[in-house]
């Protein structure tokens, strides 16, 4: 398995969990929604961590590109983190409208972010880095 396949699969897993959360919020099953949202958040943050702690530093070192794409990716991760905080708040307050609105932004933010990673960053990483080694290192952090 190379970096692209490994991380792309994680993207899909997170999407699928989010779809379930959204469904529960929509049906007013607040408790389940809260539990599942926690899982979604953990998975997403773990995925971010794999990128920020392992993939990006290696990418920057091997390609010499420091202020470029990885910086933008980090910023988008932060935007996602902020949204997830606000969503947690909305869940606590059982504010459906607010939750779904934030969720829509999060979903698209993450989708366009993933698109860029999958189209550009991951293929470049596979090209310049040792894919096998990277995947092993990332797996050590846990499974999404």
């Amino acid at each position: 398995m190379n970096i692209s396949q490994y991380l792309t699969e994680e993207h899909r897993k997170c999407d699928s969990v989010y779809a379930d959360v959204e469904k529960m919020v929509n049906e007013g099953e607040w408790e389940n929604a809260e539990k599942l949202f926690k899982e979604f958040k953990e998975k997403t943050l773990l995925h971010f961590q794999k990128e920020e702690d392992i993939l990006f530093p290696e990418f920057e070192q091997k390609t010499g590109i420091v202020m470029g794409p990885t910086q933008v990716m980090r910023m988008e991760h932060n935007q996602a983190r902020e949204l997830m905080e606000r969503m947690e708040e909305a869940l606590k307050n059982k504010n459906k409208e607010e939750f779904l609105s934030l969720g829509e932004s999060l979903m698209i933010l993450i989708q366009q972010h993933n698109m860029k990673e999958e189209q550009i960053l991951y293929p470049m990483s596979d090209q310049h880095l040792d894919s096998e080694e990277m995947v092993v290192k990332m797996s050590e952090l846990g499974e999404v």
């Binding site: 390609t63 010499g64 590109i65 470029g68 794409p69 933008v72 990716m73 860029k116 550009i120 470049m124």
Partner: peptide
């Protein structure tokens, strides 16, 4: 080498 394709990550 900075591939031109990378600026595009900006909005």
């Amino acid at each position: 080498m900075i591939p031109g394709g990378l600026q595009l990550l900006y909005l």
